[in-house]
Design a protein around this nucleic acid. Structure first.
Lengths: 203, 203
DNA sequence: AGCTTAGGCTAATGGTAGTAGCTCTAGCTA
DNA sequence: TAGCTAGAGCTACTACCATTAGCCTAAGCT
């Protein structure tokens, strides 16, 4: 985007990234809604008002993190690149792993923990791409005869989204410390494609 | 507990209940983590420090609400009183309805949106009863030959919990305004017993 | 009837987000 | 290279918040 030769713009972008990095640390320690710009400023070695040169408000920091999160999660679920039901399983697992590795961002994305914060349309955009990604995988699985055509309808997509949201939600709320491997609930993720296929068996 | 004839104790309990009521309103408007005791005091017609005669801290208010929520949810899922797989379906539906009717409490119970707040053991106690309620229903369904015995094992219970957490989580995060009837995700709840049975078909 | 104490208050502390407006200097432009 | 601009820091301030200390009044128990 910005001209690389512009030293000032580059430095500015670096500082912005550093602020977001520290903000993530603070949120991990204090809770997602516990982000304090004063704390961030202290760790950055700067007075609180100076942060407003980089972000117009606390919500703007959340919004930037929300966008980062959406992009990271989208990249994670797209990474496997496999098609069909197998691909769906691989995507779900990759997504669940990303969530356990980025719990703070995940809470910001999938719950609404910050009073008054709603993501801007621009930051929300990748969410649509994520939805489309899974819809494509499911349509593909239907085409291969791995799932009933109803799986690709509105209700099937809602069920697929709920199936993955379940274990992830439980894991984050009840055993947040665990890794993907250890988690009592994330352990269920590899079984989800079979569960989904049991609900929508091929005709 | 307290002697009913003690007028002072009764008045005190009434005021405490009124504070919790107002707190719920404020949380509904400002977000669960956005509860401000000053706002509660204003609506109660009192100065902020006076609230400390009833609750020792903001977290204590959350804790009381958490307990209320656990008790309410427990009562809701127990209400149907049916046994077996049918009873499980009835419990899940009753629970989902309660959640959509008490969204603020549900967020407090099932997510962890308030920085620094963890429920006291006493307030958390009903959660164990809720777990036990569903475990009993599932064991009963196994006994009736409606489910495979594995459904009553650790993993089966975790899956059951995840199955209900999924739609509810999606609904609260993405379509919080909807009622149980309208919700794109709560609509899936009646299908969950069948999904569960498909994963653990009787032997 | 008298005493205790519950339950209100004011004042104050130390924290927060955000604004106004000043200053200095890095680094772009002529 | 010299000069100017705007970016990025600062202090001072406002308006909130949670919480504590300590005072006062009157409800109501004994």
């Amino acid at each position: 985007m910005a001209d690389i030769s512009d030293r000032r713009a580059r430095r500015r972008a670096e500082t912005q990234a550093e602020i977001l990095d520290i903000a993530l640390d603070v949120m991990a320690e204090e809770g997602v809604a516990g982000l304090s710009l004063a704390t961030v400023a202290r760790r950055l070695g700067v007075r609180p008002p100076s942060l407003y040169k980089y972000f117009p408000s606390r919500h703007a920091v959340y919004d930037a993190l929300f966008k980062l999160g959406q992009e990271g999660y989208l990249a994670a679920v797209r990474a496997p690149g496999e098609p069909g039901l197998r691909g769906m399983g691989a995507s779900l697992e990759a997504g669940a792993r990303w969530i356990m590795d980025n719990q703070v961002l995940a809470q910001l994305l999938f719950w609404r923990p910050v009073p008054g914060f709603t993501p801007s349309p621009e930051s929300y955009a990748p969410a649509l791409a994520i939805h489309e990604h899974f819809a494509t995988l499911i349509r593909d699985a239907v085409r291969r005869g791995e799932l009933h055509p109803d799986a690709a309808r509105e209700e099937g997509l809602a069920l697929a989204a709920s199936l993955i949201a379940g274990p992830v939600s439980q894991q984050l709320a009840n055993e947040p410390g665990a890794t993907y491997e250890e988690g009592r609930f994330t352990r269920l993720v590899p079984r989800l494609p079979a569960v989904f296929a049991a609900v929508y068996p091929p005709p």
